[in-house]
Design a protein around this nucleic acid. Structure first.
Lengths: 225, 225
DNA sequence: AACCTATTCTAATATATTTTGGAATATTGT
DNA sequence: ACAATATTCCAAAATATATTAGAATAGGTT
């Protein structure tokens, strides 16, 4: 191979590796999952991910360098968002890829989430059917800010950490479908377990809001009733 | 968040990051592209990627640790292969992801491959149609070992570096469709340019052998005629 | 203009990865 | 057993990444 051809080939693979490098860090992957819920300021992201602000800023710079996130300034704050919706589809694939072929990853997911399959998750299009039939309450158990940034139309927001105290707000008889940040978010499975323990009929939505979005289903940013 | 919950969450994201880490190095990505052509020994991989054997071995260990490759021993040699076909589909996505959103990556691809679109690549199913009509020669311009490991049925193997010397073997009148390792392999585009310069009617196959495989089309490991 | 706040930048340290050359290991063939 | 060979293992050096604390910057407010 000619020297310049080898150099160009290496340069190309170095470019490909930029994407891998961006995904090579757990903190960055967590930030991407948070950003899949909607745009957030650096400070909010730092708090949600348990990182220092300066570290968060540095990781966001890496993500921006790999073309995964974009930002806008609003006054003194800078809001980051995913560069486009394909990013969350892509990171979802990375996660599924990991859990499907690494025993340790599968076990880590199970240890964190419990046995989600045993809760019989409802697929997005199945939820659509049940909504058309009426008689199902959609419960968004994510933090308020994420609900505000976008949620399933008609969903009621009760953040996971307030659920125990606000059970009285929920209609006793209705079927409840709870959703959260996605396939590897613990909020909805936990909520469903809590609800069932209190006698409710509840299921998690398979895939959370990201999979709902990718199925092309509607998302609204209006406030809840 | 409880401390142990945070620990489990971090553990999960660390597992996800293992996949990213495996993809975070250009040499490893090149090895994956080589392995997408078929299994190869460590020594062969090292030669093809321009790496030392000990380095190749170390990188393969990383890939195996991320569940991307598997190996078998045959006598004194150890042959590595992709863990399954999903791996090459996945790395292909990473590469497309990079070139579609990083200007530098797009430019690196163009600098290495030239303007492939201008050569009017033939899609796999279009090639199938043209094969059914007869009158098209399928040319595999990859190294002999890769051809031997698996090729499009009926394809003739003329490795890219022998093409200039073996033009006489090609029928003057026929349409020629040349293929190589994939979307970011330079062999087929270069071969098509050479052939056109000598008066042949030639096109590259879009996506090379990996995309042909992913389309569910047949691959044979028999020797050529 | 002075002050406040969110974010980025900088420099330093700690940690991880990459690469190399050579020793160790495993298998085959004599 | 011994020699030959492919691969892995090991230790060291070079390089890259992650994280922190605090300084610098930019926009907003008083």
């Amino acid at each position: 191979m000619r020297a310049d051809e080898r150099a160009r080939k290496t340069a190309l693979y170095e470019q490909f590796a930029r994407v891998g490098k961006a995904l090579a860090n757990p903190a960055r992957l967590e930030l991407l999952d948070l950003l899949a819920q909607g745009e957030r300021s650096v400070e909010e992201l730092a708090a949600a991910a348990g990182l220092r602000v300066s570290n968060t800023s540095a990781q966001l710079r890496v993500l921006a360098g790999a073309g995964l996130v974009a930002s806008r300034r609003d006054g003194v704050r800078i809001y980051y968002r995913l560069a486009d919706q394909n990013v969350s589809a892509f990171t979802g694939r990375v996660q599924d890829f990991a859990t499907s072929r690494l025993a340790d990853a599968e076990q880590a997911a199970r240890s964190y989430l419990g046995d989600v399959a045993a809760l019989e998750p409802v697929a997005p299009d199945e939820l659509v059917r049940r909504l058309n039939d009426g008689q199902v309450l959609v419960l968004d158990v994510r933090p308020e800010a994420e609900y505000a940034a976008g949620h399933i139309p008609g969903a009621v927001n009760v953040p996971h950490d307030q659920l125990a105290a606000r059970l009285a707000e929920l209609p006793g008889g209705a079927d409840i479908v709870a959703y959260c940040r996605g396939r590897y978010c613990v909020f909805a499975p936990d909520a469903v377990r809590q609800l069932r323990a209190r006698g409710f009929s509840a299921w998690p939505l398979a895939g959370g809001l990201p999979d709902w979005r990718h199925a092309g289903l509607p998302v609204t940013a209006q406030a809840s009733a």
